[in-house]
Design a protein around this nucleic acid. Structure first.
Length: 581
RNA sequence: GGCGCCGUGGCCAAGUGGCUAAGGCAUCGGAUUGCAAAUCCGACAUCGGCGGUUCGAAUCCGCCCGGCGCCUCCA
């Protein structure tokens, strides 16, 4: 596991045998979450799943910062309480986590619920001479900590930052606030120094100590938190306890909105981009908005849009996309890239459908394989299974190497190919379907499921966005009708009609696949209805023109059976559906 | 200016000293299909440049070119 503190990978060891404590810096809940807030939770969700898979007893903490200048400002802006702002955004945060399949968090401490611990922590630092009170504030004296700067690798002397707070009240410019006295009207808590609130960094030291102990295993967060937040945390905690705070500091890379200049490390003219930005800013005189969305993913680029993004793309796709890249890398985030990841995911979903065609069962009901089952499996003479086990080994090796989810996903694709090939080679959708083969197929898929569960994917069928469900009621029967009409055409070798139907559905986003057992369709939503109807009406008109009334009446009668009425008028054929129009 | 990260096929992305450089998307052939789709098979890179260390480097070192981040609130 890579350690930001040592700047290299280290063998994994734990403070207590068999136990792992993880603390991830969560959001300051002054606004809706954006996609960048999801990176840490998703990767740490995987890390926990993997450690649990490896039989560790894991406690994972994600804190919520619910007291802060920004929350206070927001509350004043909106004329509601700080608590109300927090509650609203916590709910939003939790919804987003759930949509991305992040459900491994054990503790969600909130700063406002840990005031006693925070105040005690500050007091301890004052008592030990590492902090001083000044006009109601309390500051950490950076100069007293000889190790200060070791995490972010900077010297106190070289620092230009002020460390926040009012310079006049501080002994050193880099000293940072542990406690801030409240201005009139601000939320405050009693303390030995003043009515006030905690500084930003102290809550993490206090809450991690409370739940995980003075020394724990993994502390995570975004790369942007290394300085000053984590540098200050480590200073507070280690001065307070005279013991290491954590064994591994793990920082995830940040998301970037795509820029016209292209890839992260690639070529591109920054000068050109800067020029254009300058020009745009002049023209629009609107410096707050970056027209090309280049640069770091910012609040303005993503705020408020996460729920919509999830509804559009689906939580599993976003999760899968994030896990394709190693967690320490910068990721260019944009919807075309998400779409591409989605294409890859579709292949897995098709394999699961294939399993259902072969067995009549649901992939999501299949029991995953386990390490124990693999050890005891005597059927390695089956070459497909042997290949699958090789993939499994590579997958686990990748995860063992600093949680390399990107490499692991590559093996998942390889595994899917092996399984598809097994189905092909043995004609499982035709004459080769035997109990014996089905059992082998299940074993292969159980391995896929075992590994996917580590990444937290393929745990349940992806939910389609809720919007379209009402209109979908008619889509199914309508498609059955289209399929039966097309089947009739195909049997009578009327391929022109069959192809017209299939080609006509394509622009509506509906695909048809002819299988041995019948035709399958996918895609489409309530928006597709008018298009399908138009197609059927045209088909019927063609039949009528040819005086093929058998076909035209069949279409009309079948539609009537599912509640859609056709009326031939002089201007054309009109249709109406009961209730759903 | 200080501290860091990165540059692998058209795009995304594993690989950090040693078999023919994973995998995905795209593209092009082939099998299959009434035709498609799906699936499978095959094709497609010598790793930003130069120099060095080494029996051997995409992988280590140096220089150069290019991109990005942090140093202020930030996941």
């Amino acid at each position: 596991m890579y350690n930001t503190l040592s700047k290299r990978k280290e063998a994994f060891r734990t403070v207590k045998p068999g136990k792992v404590g993880i603390y991830l810096c969560g959001p300051t809940v002054y606004d809706k979450a954006h996609i960048g807030h999801m990176v840490g939770p998703v990767i740490f969700d995987c890390i926990k799943r993997y450690l649990v898979y490896r039989d560790y007893d894991v406690q994972w903490v994600v804190n919520i910062t619910d007291v802060d200048d920004k929350l206070i400002n927001k509350a004043n802006e909106r004329g509601i309480s700080m608590l109300e702002v927090a509650e609203e955004n916590i709910a939003d945060y939790n919804d987003n986590l759930a949509a991305l399949g992040v459900d491994q968090i054990d503790h969600f401490p909130r700063a406002t619920e840990c005031m006693d611990e925070i105040i005690a922590f500050v007091q301890s630092l004052v008592d030990q001479g590492y902090a001083y009170a000044s006009e109601g504030d309390v500051y950490f004296e950076v100069g007293k900590d000889v190790q200060y700067g070791k995490l972010s690798n900077r010297s106190v002397a070289a620092m230009q930052g002020e460390g926040g707070g009012t310079a006049a009240r501080k002994r050193g410019l880099a000293d940072f606030a542990l406690w801030k006295s409240a201005k009139p009207g601000e939320p405050s808590w009693d303390s030995p120094w003043s009515k006030g609130r905690p500084g930003w960094h102290i809550e993490c030291s206090a809450m991690s100590k409370k739940i995980l102990g003075a020394t724990f295993d993994i502390h995570g967060g975004g790369l942007d938190l290394v300085f000053p937040h984590h540098e200050n945390e480590i200073a507070q905690s280690e001065c307070c306890h005279d013991a290491p705070m954590v064994t591994y500091w793990a920082h995830n890379g940040l998301l970037r909105a795509s820029s016209a200049a292209g890839k992260v490390g690639g070529r591109g003219s920054s000068a050109e981009r800067a020029d254009q930005e300058g020009a745009d800013e002049q023209r629009l005189s609107h410096p707050g908005v970056n027209p090309q969305q280049s640069g770091k993913m910012s609040r303005s680029a993503g705020a408020g849009g996460l729920a919509e993004l999830i509804a559009r793309q689906g939580g599993e796709r976003i999760r899968f996309f994030l896990l394709r890249t190693h967690y320490r890398s910068t990721v260019l985030f944009n919807e075309p890239a998400l779409d591409e990841a989605g294409v890859g995911l579709e292949g897995f979903y098709r394999l699961f459908k294939r399993y259902t065609r072969i067995t009549g069962k649901d992939f999501y009901d299949l029991h995953p394989s386990t390490p124990q089952a693999v050890e005891n499996d005597d059927s390695a003479n089956n070459s497909s299974l042997a290949e699958a086990l090789k993939c499994r080994e590579k997958f686990l090796n990748a995860m063992d190497d600093d949680f390399n989810t990107g490499g692991a996903i590559g093996e998942l694709f390889e595994l899917a190919k092996i399984i598809n090939k097994f189905c092909d080679d043995n004609d499982l959708e035709g004459d080769g379907n035997s109990d014996d083969r089905v059992i082998q197929l299940q074993r292969l898929l159980a391995t896929l499921k075992e590994l996917a569960a580590i990444l937290g994917i393929f745990l349940q069928a992806p939910t389609s966005d809720g919007e379209s469900e009402a209109g979908d009621a008619l889509l199914g029967p309508l498609m059955q009708l289209v399929i039966s009409i097309r089947a009739k055409a195909r049997t009578s070798k009327d391929f022109a009609t069959a192809d017209t139907l299939r080609a006509g559905l394509d622009p509506l986003g509906i695909a048809m696949e002819d299988r041995a057992g019948g035709t399958e369709w996918s895609g489409g939503d309530n928006q597709s209805m008018p298009g399908i109807m138009q197609l059927l009406v045209e088909l019927r008109n063609t039949a009528r023109a040819k005086k093929d009334f058998a076909t035209s009446d069949l279409i009309r009668d079948s539609l009537a059976a599912i509640g859609i009425t056709l009326e031939d008028r002089s201007g054309g054929t009109e249709w109406s559906a009961d209730g759903a129009k």
